[in-house]
Simulated scan of single mutants.
Amino acid sequence: MRLEGKTAIVTGAASGFGAGIARIFAREGAQVLVADLNLDAARDIADEIGGLTTQTDVSDGGSVAAMTKIALEAWGRIDILVNNAGTTHQKGPLEDVAEADFDRVFKVNAKSVYLTAREIVPQMKAAGSGAILNVASTAGISPRAHLNWYNASKGWMITATKAMAVELAPDGIRVNAICPVAGETPLLASFMGEDTPEIRAKFLATIPIGRFSQPEDMGEAAAFLCSDAASMITGVALEVDGGRCI
């Protein structure tokens, strides 16, 4: 029960890593708001874990404000924010990525961190405490070719995490990131270009532990970093990657 008595918003929590984080947080005693564009899937996760749900577009300021209002009306405070919602563009040469796809990647992966901070950091400052976790990627540390703008967006997120950590530490707010290797999520095929046994084997050969990450792996790492056990840890970009970045 590492998170007993805590309240947490997890974005992009209807599937993949976000669902894994929401499940582990609930298991550890947190009250969780499952925020996602896919409302039906978000309701399924929320029903499973006994949490709240809302349909949220993290790239839209009004939608993020509405999400924050729901949490504050239900709980009166927000102890933990997990910026998990993310997207990518199709694998290919950097000059071939459409402008609309570039804009979408940066709105979801980067602008969302600004929008949630704008709404939620003031609440955490008033409380004198809080934990923010950004779900970045190994792509922001050790980029692969042909995912250039996705890599850049995750590198941005890592830098934002460290900058936020320095600025918000005096207010009692810790900010960390986790950097997953590709996992069994809806984005896997986009990362690989196509999903075939041969491409999977080639991809897995770059991960020393020899498997893709699972949503539960991210949930366990996130629960630790957002718990009081990590009270001396801020500004970290933790590689949860089976050795991929070594």
Rank of each mutant, 00 (worst) to 15 (best):
A14F: 03
G242V: 06
E194D: 11
F102W: 13
L94N: 13
R23P: 00
Q214W: 08
L33V: 14
C179W: 05
A66P: 10
E73Q: 13
M164Q: 15
A131M: 02
V58I: 10
A230E: 07
T68D: 01
A98K: 14
S190T: 12
N38C: 08
R43N: 13
N38S: 12
G50K: 00
I132S: 03
L188Q: 07
D47K: 08
G20V: 11
G62L: 06
A237D: 07
S190Y: 09
F106P: 03
L115I: 07
G5M: 04
I233S: 01
A205G: 14
A136D: 01
A182W: 06
Q31T: 05
M192E: 14
E167I: 08
A46W: 00
G243F: 00
H89G: 13
G62N: 09
I158F: 08
M157R: 01
P93T: 14
I158A: 12
M124V: 04
V135T: 09
D228H: 07
R200D: 12
V108S: 11
L147H: 09
T185A: 06
G210M: 10
G5F: 02
E95K: 11
T53E: 12
M218V: 11
K202N: 15
E28T: 08
T234Q: 04
T196E: 09
G86N: 05
C245F: 09
Q55M: 14
G61Q: 10
G155S: 01
V135H: 00
G62T: 05
D79V: 05
A169G: 06
G210F: 06
E198H: 06
I78N: 04
M1S: 13
T161E: 00
N148R: 11
E184V: 13
D47I: 00
K154F: 03
R27V: 10
G16Y: 06
E95I: 14
E4V: 09
A71P: 03
E194M: 05
L52A: 03
A237H: 05
I158P: 10
A237M: 08
A163G: 11
D217W: 09
L204N: 08
N38D: 15
P186M: 07
G18I: 07
Q214R: 14
D79G: 02
